[in-house]
């Protein structure tokens, strides 16, 4: 039985419920597995909001709930001494609040910045996946259903963006949830096996709008837009919608992309862009043949 949390970043609306209930649970309260989370300065679960796009014409935001990934092979464990970090059988990774004193290397080791240094107590701290609550048979016993015991963040999410369950059970909701999405590891955890699985983190988009000739003041609906990455030999084809907009998500990072816009009766337009970051490429005005 391996406890896991699946995080669908596409569904996350950055409502900060998970963020707040984690603070509610741990700020000012020490427990079996952790000292109190300080009131400020630490975010055992954080929402990282990153604006994407270089134009007001098309802007998006990536919202990533960021917590400890409870890795199979934790870097923090490798950097620790004296049993300060251990991984339980159910997969939860714990930093012992006493044994870890003085070990700032544990903080540095984490590739996703999920471990925080407590200046005053001189200990590293992070998410415990609410292990103490999960272990406690009395917690939520009044609800009469042990399946209702979940980490606080998962319980508070209003949009089904966080799911908790047994990763070893093929029929579990969490595995169904993961199968329905695209697994996208956090930066720094590529190739790692983790108990916290992130889904649907976007890569790069290119977008634009196609208009008919300027004098007409009309959008071009149904113009064909073809993107090609010469390097990877990938092709993406789309059409402009009822706003004349086109957009391609999920492009490979840091590649030059050729864009070809065709529309019957008009000159073909060729543009180029690089997927170093998200771009709104152009408002394109067609010219008659």
């Amino acid at each position: 039985m391996r406890y896991g949390i699946a995080v669908d970043t596409a569904k996350c609306m950055a409502c900060y419920c998970c963020f707040t209930v984690c603070k509610d649970e741990h700020c000012g309260f020490a427990g079996k597995y952790s000292a109190a989370q300080p009131m400020m300065g630490q975010f055992w679960i954080n929402i990282v909001e990153r604006e994407r796009g270089d134009s007001s014409r098309r802007t998006k935001v990536e919202t990533i709930p960021l917590l400890c990934s409870h890795c199979e092979d934790p870097a923090c464990l490798k950097a620790s001494r004296d049993g300060a970090v251990y991984k339980r059988e159910d997969g939860i990774v714990i930093i012992d609040p006493e044994k870890s004193k003085g070990q700032s290397a544990i903080v540095e080791a984490c590739p996703t910045g999920a471990v925080f240094w407590n200046e005053e107590l001189e200990i590293p701290q992070k998410c415990t996946m609410c292990a103490e609550l999960l272990d406690d048979p009395e917690y939520l016993a009044y609800l009469g259903d042990p399946k209702l015991k979940r980490p606080r963040c998962v319980e508070a999410c209003p949009n089904r963006a966080l799911i908790f369950g047994d990763l070893d059970d093929p029929d579990s909701d969490i595995n169904k949830f993961i199968a329905a999405g695209k697994v996208t590891p956090l930066s720094g955890l590529e190739g790692q096996k983790t108990n916290v699985v992130h889904l649907n983190i976007p890569t790069v988009f290119l977008a634009g709008t196609v208009y008919r000739p300027v004098a007409e003041e009309e959008v071009a609906i149904g113009a064909k837009v073809k993107l090609t990455s010469a390097e990877t030999e990938e092709v993406w084809e789309t059409e402009t919608n009822y706003f004349g907009d086109w957009e391609v998500e999920g492009l490979p990072k840091n590649k030059p992309i050729d864009i070809e816009i065709t529309f019957d009766g008009f000159e073909t337009v060729n543009l180029s862009a690089v997927t170093d970051t998200d771009h709104y490429v152009a408002q394109t005005y067609l010219e008659a043949k």
């Binding site: 209930v21 509610d24 649970e25 309260f29 939520l140 009044y142 609800l143 009469g144 259903d145 209702l148 606080r152 319980e155 508070a156």
Partner: peptide, 11 residues
Amino acid sequence: IRRVRPIVFDD
């Protein structure tokens, strides 16, 4: 007060 949670319904 120890914690504040959403109201989760029982059967």
